[in-house]
């Protein structure tokens, strides 16, 4: 509990470190903050051309919104995925790249991980605002759904934070974590319904004579229901499935607790290992 109190006292430091991340990120680049919009725009354009135009993935019609647009269907899931992916992918480096600080000053070390995740959250929030505007232009009245959207973002943030705590501290002791993570993320992208709708995954499939409930297995991955929830709110304009919401929340809380525990176990020797 003293750790929590200490953490609470370091709010200001958290804010400053987050600002440092944000300021440092685009320092000395000509486009500066433009990059944080240009990056997702490029991704959207690429996926839209490949999957929407070439492969002609048929987006479902939003219910009850009636929206029928592959690009928007894509973006509603791509943004939460990008948040997850960039936060998790950068997390193994968080402590190591701040080694200088860890070796020379005392402060609760979690702050570094929290501020790194938070700075990426800020980018995500900016992108989400742009998305809301696009949805409004397309005729989707998302404004009343903003509170639910914020709830979803908060849940995803906790999930990301839990993972980041684990990955950041493990990578200090075992530097392969970083490589493993980027490999896993590349596979995970296609295992989450970002560029295609969930309905594309068959309910059942017989593999080697065994009848597998493929859709159910597929949905064990908490990112699947999470992305689905985002889509329900933004694309369909409907409250997410409560079962899914509870399931994802459970994961987020469990990962955060695990992350906290792992971090406090491995944290004491950080200053000499980074």
């Amino acid at each position: 509990m003293t750790r929590l109190a200490e953490l609470a006292e370091s709010r200001e430091l958290l804010a400053n470190l987050t600002l440092r991340e944000l300021r440092g990120r685009y320092k000395r680049s000509v486009l500066g903050w433009g990059w944080s919009l240009l990056n997702p725009l490029t991704a959207i354009a690429t996926y839209w051309v490949v999957f929407g135009v070439f492969l002609k993935v048929e987006p479902p019609v939003g219910h009850p919104s009636g929206l029928h647009n592959y690009a928007l269907f894509l973006v509603c899931a791509l943004l939460p995925w990008t948040f997850f992916q960039s936060a998790v992918e950068s997390s193994p480096e968080t402590l190591i790249s701040n080694g200088n600080l860890i070796k020379k000053v005392y402060f609760p070390r979690e702050i570094l991980v929290i501020s790194a995740s938070t700075s990426i959250l800020v980018t995500f929030l900016v992108e989400s605002t742009v998305l809301l505007v696009l949805l409004l232009i397309a005729g989707n009245m998302v404004l009343p759904w903003i509170p639910v959207l914020i709830l979803l973002i908060a849940i995803e943030y906790l999930l990301v934070l839990g993972l980041a705590l684990i990955l950041s501290v493990c990578n200090v002791y075992f530097r392969d974590v970083k490589h493993f993570v980027s490999l896993a993320l590349r596979i995970l992208f296609y295992a989450v319904p970002v560029v295609y709708p969930v309905t594309l995954v068959p309910e059942h499939k017989t593999i080697l004579g065994i009848d597998l409930p493929l859709r159910t297995l597929y949905q064990i991955n908490p990112l699947v229901p999470l992305v689905d929830c985002f889509r329900s709110v933004l694309y369909d304009l409907r409250f997410p499935d409560l079962g899914q919401l509870a399931y994802v929340t459970g994961w987020a809380v469990a990962l955060l607790a695990l992350g906290w525990w792992v971090f406090s176990r491995l944290e004491p020797r950080l200053a000499e290992e980074v």
Binding site: E12, R23, G24, L101, K104
Partner: peptide, 28 residues
């Protein structure tokens, strides 16, 4: 308050002013 070796956690790209604020808040 500890001052250990060179550059107690300065961020090289940031200005002296920004670093004073950052470093000050790191030191509490």
């Amino acid at each position: 308050s500890a001052l250990l070796e060179l550059g107690a956690g300065f961020h090289p790209e940031l200005s002296g002013r920004e670093n004073v604020y950052l470093n000050g808040s790191i030191l509490g």
